[in-house]
Design a binder for these strands. Structure first.
Length: 467
RNA sequence: GGCGGCAUAGCCAAGUGGUAAGGCACGGGUCUGCAAAACCCUUAUUCCCCGGUUCGAAUCCGGGUGCCGCCUCCA
């Protein structure tokens, strides 16, 4: 079995074959940095970070590029409202983005280009489109001539006629056709601006991605990804720009993640139910948030609620406890394995690995991959029941858990550092238990529980963890 | 109007032709000084409804019901 991915372009799962053997060029549309990111943004970031990790796990060399949109209408509006400059706002929220997404264990991209640092390339791109007749200047704006691009609508599977029904020309725009979209917008007085052959202005939203993909990855890339809502118009327009200019396809595979709802309602400002990552990770371990996101297939809608998150926290705790218990037991175990028996265990762990890969190969089915993780934990727990477990076997299962968790960007390992006074209490309880003074032992155990430390007596001695 | 998605146990969620993964919660048992953790057992003769195709369907086809999304800034 090898990797198959669902391609929005064909609406089918296709065998994944990169353009260049062993290498993957991947671009993910990043945030417009005018605010803190919400959990919908987080889902996209986590999902495609996981895709990247898995591609690397199966041996690809991945070049991962993700942009920051640091100039556009929303930033300009925010600038007016807050009396702060556009670059100030952008800088602040880029920093916040890195923190938020970093907490969720999303690795930084190889390159994080910014629109404002790509202006010369954007202008050159637009100029070439004008030269080829795919774009026109009108009143200081430049628009893409949609009807000239024959494939327009191929990604969202809409005909131009159907799309026209919803299209509007805003007041002040000078489009030839309602479906045309801005490549360059003339600056209004006081707005942030750059010089261009068409006067002072700023790039439209879609053009930056086309220019960045070309600059950092080339004319055709392997994977272009983003949220479902970017399919139209953003990605459709990117395709129009890039393919009109280059005469070759922009990306082989287009991946889109599904929506995230809050208590079964769409998350939106008007409903007032937007949850910021920043706030969420104050209440929940970021690992749990990531785990929760990955328990649902990335293309399916995911519902968010307190109860669901609590349930996910319980679920994830099971994996963490097994991990912790393996480590505790490893300190007390000896190497007992004979060579032939080792082969049996290796065969078992290889089988888990095969299953994990099989699930991830099926369009990144993280939900099923996680179920393999639970099966590994179950097996490990059974081994922990045995009084004479071998060190090699325990270590093999611990490593396997870490290996899978790492592909998913999850951290199972917890370091439990105890204060001196807590250690002293544990020691006192041990002495009390030896003397069969269970009243004292239980009192200390309750006391520690109140402080967030759970004690568990095992045949190998006392074991502790934090709540 | 056009395009698309979803409906599986109390809850979450995989599964898209071969006889219902996994997790949470619940109940019983084992282990334990008691716990905790863990393990074992139990928990959907059945996958929104009605027809059809098939040796066989949650899975395919037709019809219906309900919910949702996109077509406009949006992950």
């Amino acid at each position: 079995m090898s990797l198959r991915v669902f391609n929005t372009l064909t609406r089918q799962k296709e065998p994944f074959q990169p353009i260049e053997e062993g290498k993957v060029k991947m671009y993910v549309c990043g945030p417009t940095v005018y605010n803190y990111i919400h959990i919908g943004n987080a889902r996209a970031a986590v999902v495609f970070d996981t895709v990247r990790r898995y591609l690397e796990y199966i041996g690809y060399e991945v070049t991962f590029v993700s942009n920051f949109t640091d100039v556009d209408d929303r930033l300009i509006n925010a600038s007016k409202e807050r009396g702060e400059s556009v670059p100030e706002i952008a800088e602040r929220f880029i920093k916040a983005y890195r923190e938020d997404v970093g907490a969720l264990n999303v690795r930084p991209a190889d390159v994080h280009p910014r629109a404002t640092e790509t202006i010369p390339e954007i202008i050159a791109f637009i100029q070439k489109l004008i030269d080829k007749g795919y774009a026109y200047e009108a009143g200081g704006d430049v628009y893409f001539r949609t009807k000239k691009f024959r494939d327009y609508g191929k990604l969202s599977h809409q005909s131009i006629d159907e799309l026209k029904v919803g299209a509007r020309i805003q007041v002040g725009e000078h489009k030839e056709d309602p479906l045309d979209f801005a490549l360059w917008k003339a600056a209004k007085p006081g707005e942030i601006k750059w010089d261009s052959p068409w006067g002072e202005g700023r790039p439209g939203w879609h053009i930056e991605c086309s220019a960045m993909v070309e600059k950092y990855l080339g004319n055709t890339i392997d994977i272009h990804a983003g949220g479902q809502d970017l399919t139209f118009p953003h990605h459709e327009n990117e395709i129009a720009q890039s393919e009109a200019l280059h005469g070759q396809i922009m990306a082989k595979y287009w991946l889109h993640n599904g929506y995230l709802n809050i208590n079964n309602e769409k998350m939106s400002k008007s409903l007032g139910n937007v949850i910021l990552v920043r706030d969420l990770i104050k209440a929940y371990d970021p690992n749990v948030v990531r785990f929760f996101i990955l328990t649902v297939h990335y293309r399916h809608p995911i519902n968010f609620s307190d109860d669901l998150l609590k349930s996910a926290a319980q679920s994830f705790e099971r994996l963490r406890i097994t991990h912790l218990n393996l480590r505790h037991r490893l300190e007390k175990s000896a190497d007992l394995l004979e060579e032939e028996k080792e082969k049996v265990w290796t065969a078992k762990t290889d089988e888990f690995r095969r299953r994990f890969k099989e699930e991830m190969d099926d369009d990144f089915n993280t939900a099923n991959a996680i179920s393999v993780l639970f099966d590994v934990a179950k097996e490990a727990n059974v081994i922990l029941q045995d009084k004479n477990s071998s060190r090699q076997v325990l270590q093999a299962y611990l490593d396997l858990l870490d290996e899978f968790a790492n592909v998913l960007g999850l951290t199972l390992k917890q370091d439990v550092v105890l204060d001196e006074d807590i250690e002293a209490l544990i020691k006192r309880r041990e002495e009390a238990r030896k003397m069969k003074d269970f009243a004292t032992a239980d009192r200390i155990r309750d006391e520690l529980k109140a402080k967030g430390v759970i004690l568990e007596d095992t045949p190998q001695g006392v074991r502790w963890r934090r709540i």
